[in-house]
Computed example of a mutant assay.
Amino acid sequence: MNSSLSELEFQEMDARTAATQPAPWKSWVEGRDFLGGSNFIQTGQGPDRGEDIEMTGATAADQDFMAAAWQDIPRLIAEVRRLRGLLSRSK
């Protein structure tokens, strides 16, 4: 089994990211980040603020991971593409 990701797979990841609510996403955990209310992920900010995402059954770590993934995944894809470009130029 080839574990290498194809450009098509990166394009699909980009499309899934683009289809979500606006960035940045920020995890807010009651008792850690504010007092009163429930845990949620804030989407967007200012005029680009989206709907808050509220979950049940997620730990604070789960929620932090999901919120950070919006920022992390596009950066990882860009870095892999950059490194592949460097490798292809060095051949």
Rank of each mutant, 00 (worst) to 15 (best):
T59F: 06
T20A: 04
T17C: 05
L8T: 09
N39S: 12
R32A: 08
N2M: 10
D64W: 03
F10C: 01
S6T: 15
F40K: 14
D64G: 02
R32E: 07
V80W: 01
L35A: 12
L83Q: 11
E9I: 02
Q63R: 14
Q42R: 15
M66H: 03
G50D: 01
M55R: 04
L87N: 03
E54T: 08
F65N: 13
S27R: 13
Q45C: 02
P22H: 07
E51G: 04
P74D: 12
K26Q: 13
E54M: 02
R32I: 06
S27N: 08
A19K: 02
P74Q: 06
P47C: 01
G85P: 00
W28Y: 11
T59E: 09
S27F: 09
S6E: 14
F40M: 10
Q71L: 10
W28S: 07
T59K: 10
V29T: 12
A78T: 08
Q71A: 15
P74H: 09
A78E: 08
S88F: 02
A18N: 00
D48E: 07
G31K: 12
R89T: 09
G57A: 11
N2W: 05
E9W: 05
S88K: 12
P74Y: 12
R16P: 00
R75S: 14
T43N: 06
I77Y: 01
S38G: 07
A23E: 02
G31N: 07
N2Y: 03
Q21A: 12
R82G: 00
A68G: 10
S3I: 10
I77R: 10
M1F: 04
M13R: 03
Q42K: 13
V29W: 06
Q11D: 14
E9L: 03
S27A: 15
E7R: 02
R81G: 01
G37A: 13
F10K: 01
S88G: 05
Q21R: 12
S90Q: 13
L35F: 05
K91F: 06
D72L: 13
